[in-house]
Design a protein around this nucleic acid. Structure first.
Lengths: 186, 186
DNA sequence: CGTCATGTATAGCAGCGTTATATATCCTCG
DNA sequence: CGAGGATATATAACGCTGCTATACATGACG
């Protein structure tokens, strides 16, 4: 699933940009700074993608929609997604990484407020949904799991996390299913 | 959580081993071959660790125990765990990667046979448990989530996946809790 | 003992990220 | 309007990387 990549070199990038090696140093401060800027761009892009998900009156639907949009964005830009989580290089503005996580916590909080979830911490639910989706995505992006696994296991994982948070089994499946297809652009 | 690492160089390794650069080429065929051997070693080590988990008459307990042992092994050897999933380098014997996954599927199949799970594919349950654990582990190992998240969200994720597979909520929590502590050596 | 094969050490190549130095460009101020 | 200083760029070089080619040592076998 991951596009084959020839190694990314500073000299090669500068040459392709029609400038010299030194420009990269004045503008990004070297190779780690450049990757940090790439990471940042990835988080900004992700936040914009998640912001396109319109909240409904069904918070579990919204959780699934956000998860699908998250996965959709990662599949559309697999190398960027991998780079985003290369924590060996610093993020120029570390706060941007939280921006993508906020709407997920918000939807979980609404699910709690609406009585869909039991006495759980919304941040914990969001964390579990994120971790599960992250793992599934990485396994698919690195060709450990086939691409179809995303469409089949993704909603199943979202439903499982919501069930674990206390959602009503009778409603959960339908909410997740509709939310997932609403968030997935394909 | 990940130990800081100075870059791994072929020349440095050969020097530390008291031999010359060429020995690495005759024995491993170069840098990719060396990383492939490292990956393989990681999977063999993981399979040995999972084999130490003794099956009980509670398959959900066993699933949680295997998950805990999996996480325990990854935390004990974080850099090896990361290397295992660097699919850019080939595995000398690709089958060994399946060895670690087999006991998970086996426990899920027993849960189905015992009526703990509904009409689900055991392999799907194992995949979801694996993906969720993998994601949580990577987020913890790369310092995106704090180390405590493993002990709190790990069992919660395992329980959610089992609930999603149809396990009885009244029994699930206890099985997962006991299984997790049985598999976690810490 | 001679021959062949196998594994090792040395030397060199092209490429990398990075740094130091020199040059050009632009904004500011007398 | 023209000089001065700051900023961005280009060139050249350094040490390092993985890798290859070549020469050398060591052991098995007829």
């Amino acid at each position: 699933m991951l596009a084959a990549r020839e190694p990314v070199t500073l000299r090669g990038l500068a040459g392709r940009a029609g400038t010299s090696t030194m420009a990269v140093y004045t503008h990004f401060g070297g190779m780690p700074g450049l990757w940090g800027a790439v990471r940042q761009e990835g988080f900004v892009h992700l936040a914009a993608r998640l912001a396109r998900v319109q909240p409904t009156d069904d918070p579990v639907h919204d959780l699934a929609a956000l998860g699908a949009a998250y996965a959709d964005n990662a599949v559309a830009h697999p190398l960027l997604y991998r780079a985003m989580f290369d924590t060996a290089v610093d993020l120029p503005d570390p706060e941007v990484a939280d921006g993508g996580f906020a709407p997920l916590v918000g939807a979980a909080a609404r699910a709690c407020a609406d009585g869909r979830f039991g006495a759980v911490d919304p941040a914990d639910v969001a964390t579990r949904l994120w971790a599960a989706g992250h793992g599934l995505l990485l396994l698919v992006l690195t060709d450990v799991l086939p691409a179809e696994a995303l469409g089949s296991q993704g909603p199943a994982l979202a439903e499982a996390v919501c069930l674990g948070a206390g959602d009503d089994p009778a409603r959960c499946a339908a909410s997740v299913r509709s939310g997932w297809s609403a968030g997935w652009d394909g």
